[in-house]
Simulated assay, not measured.
Amino acid sequence: MTTVATAPAPRQPRHIHIESGALKLDYQASAEQAQNVADELAQGSPELVVTVDDDVSEDLPPLPCSRLWE
């Protein structure tokens, strides 16, 4: 019997937008990372507006310290 290893499915990047007054930040992150950040910010900083969507463009920078949110 032959076992074939399959590569993990690539992570679908998500767009995370963080806004508070004049501060507007846009990043790309994995779905898990984006949701974890959104959940944490909603609990700890209710003045922030955080949205996660599929509007990802290649020029969006990656979420800083993204591995912390896995």
Rank of each mutant, 00 (worst) to 15 (best):
P64A: 06
V4Q: 13
S57M: 03
E70K: 09
G21C: 13
P61E: 04
E40C: 12
D54N: 11
H17D: 14
S30E: 07
Q35R: 13
A7V: 15
D39W: 05
A38L: 00
A42T: 11
P8Y: 01
R11K: 15
L23K: 13
R67G: 01
D26Y: 00
Q33S: 13
A31Q: 14
S45C: 02
E47D: 12
P46I: 10
T6Y: 12
S30N: 04
L63V: 03
E47V: 05
A42D: 11
V50C: 03
E19Q: 15
A42I: 04
V50F: 03
W69H: 05
D55T: 01
A9D: 15
P13V: 05
A22R: 14
L68D: 02
A5E: 14
V49E: 07
S57L: 05
T6M: 10
Q43C: 06
A42N: 07
Q43A: 12
T2P: 13
T3W: 06
V37C: 07
D55M: 02
V52S: 01
S57A: 10
N36P: 05
A42H: 09
L25P: 01
P10H: 11
R14S: 14
T2G: 10
A9H: 09
D59P: 00
G44C: 08
L68E: 02
S30P: 04
G21T: 08
L41G: 09
T6N: 09
Q35M: 11
S66A: 12
P10N: 07
A34S: 10
R11I: 12
L60H: 04
V4G: 10
T3P: 05
A22Q: 15
S57E: 03
P61Q: 05
P62V: 07
M1Q: 10
G21K: 12
D54I: 00
S66C: 02
A42G: 04
D26T: 07
L63W: 05
V52R: 01
E19P: 01
P10L: 14
P62I: 02
P64W: 02
V56R: 00
S66K: 06
A29F: 08
E70V: 02
I18F: 11
L41P: 01
A5S: 13
T2Y: 12
T51Y: 01
V52Q: 04
Y27Q: 03
E58R: 05
P10G: 12
V56F: 01
M1K: 10
